[in-house]
Amino acid sequence: MKIQLSYVIRRVAFAIATLFAAIVMNFLLPRLIGGDPAEMIASQTALGSPDVANALRKQFGLDDPSLVHQFGSYIAQLLHGNLGISYFNYPVPVKDVLWNALPWTLGIVLIATLLSYAAGWFIGIKGALKPGSWFDHSALGVSFFINSVPYFWVGIMLILIFAYKLDWFPMGQAIPVEYDSLDSLHKLGSIAYHAVLPIASLALASIATHILVLRNNLIRVLSEDYMVLARAKGLSARRRVFHYGIRNAFLPSFTGFMLSLGHVVGGAITMEIVFSYPGIGMLTYNAILNHDYPLIQGAFLVIAVSIIAVNLLADLIYPLIDPRVNLN
């Protein structure tokens, strides 16, 4: 199936429009929170001296009263690939702050997402082949339970059992304190070791949805006329399921999968708190609490760009794998 050029152009144009709207929104949202970071810093460290607050305000470029001007300089900076300077990380650029946190988030959340989908689909397929079997029931039951308890509860339980009581895994953090003195193989090993519980908790927390979506779709597809026909024609169950069934049932799951990928960058703030894990979620949360506009904007921008990019990718891949998608 050939992708029509006009379709591609439309999708790209849409992505660019979304990006621009996202940038405008990014600029406005944090300013709506109110509060003055300069005052907060001054009151914490300088007895609330207005002179210090004013000096800080000047340093941060907050002395410019006009929103339009602020927006103008924001856009100008963006065009130069400059995300500004974080207030609370002053004088470190937002780019560096984000760059330090991003690898941890990407690693953990990406692996957890992939694992969760892989396991979810596997269990979903098994369940759909024998709906109502003990496997189907217990997998659904357990995953539903985990799906309906708060994420941090799952995390706490994992820490309680596997770290605090059994001592199999560290209680938190991404690397051992003596990380710098390890050789590279042990460095990698220690990162993996510390990542086990966070990844397991994230994967567990989202697996139920993946199981359910694939299972229900597969059950539906398998009951459709052409599958019944295929059965009547004597095609083996294996061939029916894997060749026809899964391909068709897979599409809604694929959409969900691409969406999840886009959100990977957003991080998992509760996970980061529970496991004392570095990442972009906590960074964003603290930035909001601290009214660190440039950092909030930077974080939101990175998240927005990744979501828009993945969505665009999904839009472009979709017609290739699903001939039914109407390109017009």
């Binding site: 199999w168 895994f169 070791y193 086990v196």
Partner: peptide, 13 residues
């Protein structure tokens, strides 16, 4: 799976 992965790397921990 997670456990195996973790313990496999135990030497580094």
């Amino acid at each position: 799976v997670a456990l195996l992965a973790g313990c496999g790397n135990n030497a580094g921990n």
